[in-house]
Each structure stands twice: as structure tokens, then as C-alpha cells.
Simulated scan of single mutants.
Amino acid sequence: MRHQHRARAVRGFARTMPAVITLPTLLALVLAAPAAAGAQQNAAAQPAAEQAAAQSGAAENGDEPLTFLDSVTVTATLAPAPVMETPGTVTVIDSQTIQERMITDFADLVKYEPGVYVENSVTRLGLNGFNIRGIGGNRVMTQVDGFQMSEQFDFGPFNVHQFGIDVDALQSVEIVRSANSALYGSDALGGVVSLFTKDPEDWLRGNRFHVGAKTVWDGRANDAIGKVAVAGGGDRIQASLFVSGNRGSEIRNQGTIETTDDSRTAPNPQNVRGSQVLAKLVFTPTPGNMWRAAAEMYDT
């Protein structure tokens, strides 16, 4: 009798369902639910299993277990914190990314960053400053090693920009896309861009001495750039010296008319030159206690 009542109840329930769902379909869905739940659990556990397998394999080979680290920012909160735990939108670009993308200037540095670009001077004096989400000029604070750079100055055809530092001398760049007036004042209404230069250890990488050189040629403006880096030291005292310079001329075009009126099509004669010197001394008397001294000179 109980089996008959159950069969009648199932038939009654099946009659109340829409016509497109039949009793066999309903039974198939009920039986497939536990299997689907098990598949989801296996899929969720797969990354953890792969990470555990990688760590166990490293242990069998005698290596240390792999450690996955998140990018850390200091600019967004004035204290070291993981990027994923900071409010607002923060981007950290390290020196390895700069080398892999073959970045030569700050326009290339933020080329793939949404909402961020570098303003170009219409007076042909180079790049002006960062623009974050439509706000630029002196409303975007630019820092080098924690010190605010001089404000941008425009007067007629004359322009003083903020890009005297060479990108190859940078250890990392932090871009904060939200207003930080509470932390940095009204100069950070559009955001903050913090540039951190390389320490001697970034050049040495565990060695006692390092010498490196790099040359760049830009055929558009006949711009030749040369860079030299020298670093050395031991466990307690390290020093580094980075020198770069560039020489160039006006951007070329196909114009050949060199008149002095509005019919001129040839480029106006203009020479571009610049140089940078960055010297650093790091003293580590005890573990966890570090003293830094830096001297920087820009001529653009």
C-alpha cells in the first residue's frame, strides 16, 4: 500500500509540472545532481592539488617549496600592503616588466594602463605629466623615492616638465588612480604616481661588482641615448652610479620647403639633449637597519 501511495504521489506531482518535463527527465535530473556537485568540488580542489603537487615535487628534489607572493604597494596606504587589499585601483610596474616590454620613456610605461596616459607638449618640448582619468597637470602628484617632484610650469612656448629621470634607473612604479587628498593633500586630487629608483643590490643581484651599458637609437628624431651603470660593495656597504645622456634633433617628415613663412613644410631646426646622474650609497649596520644616501641630477 505504501508503494502505491508513493507512485500516486509521484504521478500527481508529474501532472502539475509543465508539459515539457516528464517523469523520466525529472528522475534523470535528480540522479545527476550529486554527480554535478562532486564535479564542482573536484574542479575547485584542482588548483590546490596542483599547488600541493608542485610543492611536494620540489621537496622530493631537495628544493624549497614554492611560495606565491602578491605585489606590495606603499603609495596607496603609506604603509606596505598587498595590492589586492588596498582601496582604489593600484598598479605596480616593476623593473622586470620595464625590461620585457622594452620601455624607453614614460609614455610607453603607461601605454597599457587603462585611464592613464602622458600628456604631450604642443610646444614640441617633450612629455608634460601624467593624466589619470581626465585629471592632469599639478593635480596628479609625482614622487621620486618618496619626495615630491617640482610642479609643472607652463608659460607661453616655455614648458618645464617632470620627466628627467630615466626609466632604466627605476626599481618600480606605483600608480594610484583614486583621489588621495587625505594622505597627500590637494596635489593628489587625480591620483599619485610614485617612482622608486634602483638600489645597488638591484644592480648587483648577489654579486660583488657590476658594470652595464645600454644604447638606444630612435630614428624618428635622430635621438641617440647612452646609459652606463656601475655598482659594487659587500654585505654592509654598497654603492652604485647610473649615468645616462641623449642627443637628438627635430622629428623628421617628408617636407622639403624651407621658407620662413607659413608655406614651410620642412621641420624647424631643433636640438634635444638631456642627461641624468643617480648615485646611491647604502649602509646596513645590522639586519633590519638600513641607511640610504642618494644624489640625483637631471638636465633636460
Results as ranks from 00 to 15, higher is better:
residue 6 R to T: 10
residue 7 A to E: 11
residue 15 R to P: 03
residue 19 A to Q: 12
residue 24 P to M: 04
residue 25 T to G: 11
residue 25 T to D: 10
residue 28 A to L: 13
residue 32 A to N: 07
residue 34 P to S: 05
residue 35 A to R: 07
residue 37 A to F: 08
residue 39 A to G: 08
residue 40 Q to V: 13
residue 43 A to K: 15
residue 53 A to L: 13
residue 57 G to D: 10
residue 58 A to W: 04
residue 63 D to K: 10
residue 66 L to A: 15
residue 70 D to A: 12
residue 72 V to T: 13
residue 76 A to V: 12
residue 77 T to K: 10
residue 79 A to V: 09
residue 85 E to S: 06
residue 87 P to V: 08
residue 89 T to G: 05
residue 100 E to Q: 13
residue 101 R to W: 09
residue 102 M to N: 02
residue 103 I to C: 00
residue 110 V to H: 00
residue 113 E to M: 02
residue 119 E to K: 07
residue 126 G to H: 03
residue 128 N to W: 04
residue 128 N to E: 15
residue 131 N to D: 14
residue 134 G to V: 12
residue 134 G to W: 02
residue 135 I to L: 15
residue 137 G to S: 11
residue 141 M to A: 13
residue 143 Q to R: 09
residue 145 D to C: 08
residue 146 G to S: 07
residue 149 M to E: 12
residue 153 F to K: 14
residue 155 F to E: 15
residue 156 G to Y: 09
residue 156 G to I: 09
residue 158 F to K: 14
residue 167 V to M: 04
residue 167 V to C: 11
residue 170 L to E: 01
residue 171 Q to T: 06
residue 173 V to S: 08
residue 177 R to Y: 07
residue 179 A to H: 06
residue 185 G to Y: 15
residue 195 L to W: 10
residue 195 L to Y: 03
residue 197 T to E: 02
residue 197 T to G: 00
residue 199 D to M: 07
residue 202 D to C: 01
residue 204 L to G: 12
residue 206 G to H: 00
residue 210 H to L: 04
residue 211 V to D: 05
residue 214 K to M: 09
residue 216 V to F: 03
residue 220 R to L: 14
residue 230 V to T: 12
residue 232 G to S: 02
residue 234 G to Q: 05
residue 234 G to P: 00
residue 242 F to A: 00
residue 243 V to H: 04
residue 258 E to Y: 10
residue 259 T to Q: 01
residue 260 T to S: 10
residue 260 T to F: 01
residue 264 R to Y: 01
residue 276 Q to A: 12
residue 282 V to S: 13
residue 283 F to T: 02
residue 284 T to Y: 05
residue 285 P to V: 09
residue 287 P to T: 07
residue 296 E to P: 00
